[in-house]
């Protein structure tokens, strides 16, 4: 995202003018240090927005704490007595926080987000799948699921898919930790298919249970 306008000195120093008092505000600050007005959310990445270290391994409790603390300050309900303009800005802040939270909370989305930012989008995010072993693994698993006729058989397949998913998640985390983004992309692509498989198995189990009842 390169700005098309000539860079003005304020932007160059990470400063922008507060919309309310016109004073300087550092990029990413949610409130003006001078007048206290809520500022537009800007373009920060999800980790920065929530004040978390940029790493695949996210402490989910720390994520919740960071998210709640920021929503408490920025949610439009907190600005109900302010002007329409401030409420609208608070709403856009709240939207950005929800986006960051939703993305980082789910390991699959988190991996996809980090890989897209690193220029290695996962299949489905604008890239096509080129892993033939994964394609045949997926096809076999789907067929097995379709052929399973009893709830017990489906339950066994669901349990295996869930175990595979957990192992694959560990592979993704390991690849990120080792800084091997190509491996991370490969594992994340597989993770996406396994997550879908687990969901399908769950749905099939529910429909079989419904028929039995």
């Amino acid at each position: 995202m390169s700005p098309t306008n000539p860079i003005d000195p304020a932007t160059a120093h990470g400063l922008s003018a507060c919309w309310s008092c016109q004073g300087p505000v550092a990029a990413g600050e949610p409130f003006c240090p001078t007048c206290g007005a809520v500022q537009p959310p800007g373009q920060a990445d999800h980790f920065t927005r929530l004040g978390l270290p940029r790493a695949f391994d996210v402490d989910l409790q720390a994520l919740d704490r960071a998210y709640f603390a920021r929503q408490r300050a920025l949610h439009p309900d907190r600005m109900a007595r302010h002007s329409a303009r401030e409420r609208a800005i608070a709403e856009s802040q709240s939207v950005s926080l929800n986006d960051a939270y939703e993305t980082l909370r789910d390991p699959m989305r988190r991996a996809g987000y980090m890989l897209a930012a690193a220029g290695r989008p996962v299949a489905g995010d604008g890239a096509t799948i080129d892993d033939h072993a994964l394609l045949s693994e997926t096809m076999e698993a789907r067929e097995a699921l379709m052929e399973a006729a009893t709830e017990t058989e489906v339950a066994a397949l669901a349990a295996r898919a869930a175990a595979d998913r957990a192992a694959c998640l560990a592979d993704v985390a390991g690849a990120f930790a080792a800084g091997d983004l190509d491996a991370a992309r490969r594992h994340a692509t597989r993770l996406r298919y396994l997550v879908k498989l687990v969901e399908e198995a769950h749905r099939r189990r529910l429909s079989l249970a419904g028929k039995a009842a």
Partner: peptide
Amino acid sequence: AQRRMDKAI
């Protein structure tokens, strides 16, 4: 406002 911004820069 402009003076305040200049000072910050």
